[in-house]
Amino acid sequence: MTLAATAMLGGVGMIGWGMRDSAGLADVLPSAAAGTATAGPSAGPSAAAPSGPTPEQRAAQERKAREAALTKALDAYAKQAPEFSVSVRDNRTGRVYAYRGKEKYETASVVKVDILAALLLDAQDEDRELTANELALAQRMIRASDNDATTALFRVVGRTGGLARANKRLGLKSTVVDSAWGLTRTTVTDQATLLGRLAADSGPLDAGSRKLALGLMGTVQADQRWGVSAAARPGERTAIKNGWLPRSTEGGRWIINSVGRITGDGVDVSVAVLSHGHGSMDAGIGAVEKVSRLTRTHLKW
């Protein structure tokens, strides 16, 4: 999977494994013959040009084809589904694919991962563990998606200003914190960055903080084990946080979001799906899970 520059084609912003637009493949790497010297009359047999692409070039071409196939499939699904965006991050390489990566969505409860990260940063800065009360609130916030616990921790981290400062340290460039924390606006690109902070050895979160956050996300209540986890295969592990909210400003239609990490033999991938405009919670869950599975089918992670 090779990270390429962002492409903005047909209104779709993508970052990733070599981003592609559904209209076709834009060349990122030189063709097999590009840069190859042509032997002149005096050149001997040893000066013959390579006969084809290198293994690295073939691998890059395969990745580009997979991205193109995924973008085409997502474009087709987007014609019949409410608005959505998706990002996929390969945690082994740091490469990211994003479909409509710059579009902002209200977070609903996925912001709770962000609040937890801010809490852990504060504790690190003070060179201490979470207090017993903070840990209990964090457990309720992530495992049970408890809103009262979240509001309490939102106050602990400094409300809007404190969370915004933490986000700057975490590298979230497009997330706009709202005083009503569930209405914070974010992008799948920022969610890929945050999930990456939970997976990477380098970065502002130390090993203990990352272990705690992923441990809580890996033990959410049974009724909340949906969303990006639908892309996991038997034997793989998933750490997730979902968000769901009917919006009065959208005629009672639903925001359905899901972010998480899937690990297993040869797999360490984070996926974020943000969406809104669903007629019911169940319909939104079905859409998020379909998008998650499409990423695995076409990127073959």
Rank of each mutant, 00 (worst) to 15 (best):
P55R: 11
P55V: 09
R58W: 08
R58Q: 14
A60Q: 09
Q61K: 11
E62S: 14
A65K: 06
R66H: 02
A68P: 01
A69Q: 04
K72Q: 02
L74V: 02
S85K: 03
S85F: 01
V86L: 05
V86C: 04
V86F: 03
V86E: 04
T93W: 06
T93D: 07
G94S: 08
G94R: 10
R95T: 14
R95V: 11
Y97E: 13
A98D: 13
G101L: 04
E103L: 12
K104T: 13
Y105A: 08
A108K: 01
S109C: 10
I115R: 02
L116G: 06
L116K: 02
L119Y: 07
L120G: 08
L121D: 05
D122A: 11
E126N: 11
R128G: 13
R128K: 14
E129G: 10
T131P: 06
N133W: 09
E134Y: 03
L135C: 01
A136N: 09
L137R: 06
Q139I: 05
R143H: 05
A149F: 00
A149Y: 01
A149E: 02
A149N: 06
T151P: 00
T151A: 12
V156W: 05
V157Y: 05
G158Q: 08
G158F: 07
R159Q: 15
T160Q: 15
G162M: 12
R165K: 14
A166P: 11
K168V: 14
R169C: 11
L172P: 13
T175C: 10
T175R: 09
V176D: 14
A180K: 09
T186E: 02
T186A: 04
T186C: 01
T187P: 05
T187L: 05
V188N: 02
T189K: 11
D190G: 05
D190M: 03
D190A: 03
Q191M: 15
Q191W: 10
L195K: 10
L195Q: 10
R197W: 09
R197M: 11
A199Q: 13
A200S: 15
A200Y: 02
